[in-house]
């Protein structure tokens, strides 16, 4: 059993400590908003926050984050009110297929914590998620919109 706090709720997960956090979140905690894309920390679809820092959960062992605070896309909205990044995503009609967007939004949420008004160069450096639909133009616009919100 591994104790994990996900979106403020403590979970006791019956899982081996070397299980990737991604699969513990998806299969053991049952939160499927966090996506599997590559399994090798390349694409960022599985990005979550661990104690506030963006991490690619496919390449983090769940045993290494026991007792820490994990935030997933499901925990971003508070009492039904969308997080400003989510709201900017809706306002700018960002997603196409949407599969990468949970990870993209979590990465952006972390960026805005560190840099509330990021420049284009900050965005280029911090946001390295793959989006095969190619939503980058709207992602950039929405990041700036969220920063102003």
């Amino acid at each position: 059993m591994i104790a994990l706090t996900i979106n403020g709720t403590e979970h006791q997960l019956d899982v081996e400590p070397d299980t990737p956090l991604l699969w513990a979140i998806r299969e053991n905690a049952g939160l499927t908003g966090t996506k599997y894309g590559c399994g090798i920390a390349q694409c960022g679809a599985c990005t979550v926050l661990v104690d506030g820092a963006a991490m690619r959960s496919c390449s983090v062992q769940v045993g290494d984050v026991a007792g820490k605070q994990v935030s997933t896309i499901e925990g971003l909205a508070i009492e039904g009110k969308l997080h400003k990044v989510q709201q900017a995503w809706v306002d700018n009609d960002v997603p196409q297929c949407g599969y990468c967007q949970s990870g993209m939004i979590m990465a952006v949420a972390a960026l805005l914590q560190d840099k509330p008004t990021p420049t284009d160069a900050d965005i280029d450096e911090a946001i390295t998620n793959i989006c095969r639909c190619g939503t980058f133009q709207q992602v950039r616009e929405a990041i700036h919109a969220a920063a102003k919100a």
Partner: peptide, 20 residues
């Protein structure tokens, strides 16, 4: 605006891989 956006920003959209 697209009709399918909100669920794609909240993790609620169910893709094939998410079936339970």
């Amino acid at each position: 605006k697209r009709l399918d956006t909100v669920d794609k920003t909240t993790g609620k959209m169910v893709y094939g891989i998410d079936v339970k």
